[in-house]
């Protein structure tokens, strides 16, 4: 496989095309994230019952990598408890940084992004944004 094919694996393109988690969620909490170096923006929406994430979605404009990554993430977060979601996000971020190889099968499609250091930020933008949102929700709940 060429480097480019590894970056844009078919599965990644499929998640990019899958718009089932794209769009605003009414009556949800949201958070905006921004990649300063390229201007990509993502807004993340989450509906939860105080314990579990019931629904997640995103809006925004960005490259294939950032959009596919937001799409997979929204899909994976649904049904998880806030704590499980938090751990999954931290795991993905460490995986993208090269700190761990231990990652679930679906997320291995981002392996190829790692050889393009400037694109790692695209892959993690939605995840960083989700992490902030979840930590916010957990903090509010704690009080």
């Amino acid at each position: 496989m060429s480097n480019l094919d590894e970056l844009y694996r078919d599965m990644l393109l499929e998640f990019y095309m899958d718009t089932s988690h794209k769009g605003e969620l009414k009556e949800s909490e949201h958070r905006e994230g921004k990649n300063i170096s390229c201007g990509d923006e993502v807004t993340l929406y989450m509906k939860h019952d105080g314990d579990r994430i019931i629904k997640a979605s995103f809006t925004g404009d960005g490259c294939v990598v950032s959009q596919a990554s937001a799409s997979v993430m929204a899909h994976l977060l649904e049904g998880k408890t806030l704590e499980e979601a938090r751990r999954l996000i931290l795991n993905f971020i460490s995986f993208m940084k090269g700190d761990t190889e231990d990652i679930s099968e679906e997320l291995k499609i981002f392996e190829g992004v790692k050889q393009f250091p400037s694109r790692v930020k695209c892959a993690t933008l939605a995840w960083h944004t989700a992490l902030e949102l979840i930590e916010d929700i957990m903090k509010k709940k704690g009080n």
Binding site: L4, D61, G62, C63, V65, Q67, F116, R119
Partner: peptide, 8 residues
């Protein structure tokens, strides 16, 4: 297509 993908 996003310009980053084009440039890549």
């Amino acid at each position: 297509l996003h310009p980053h993908d084009v440039a890549q």
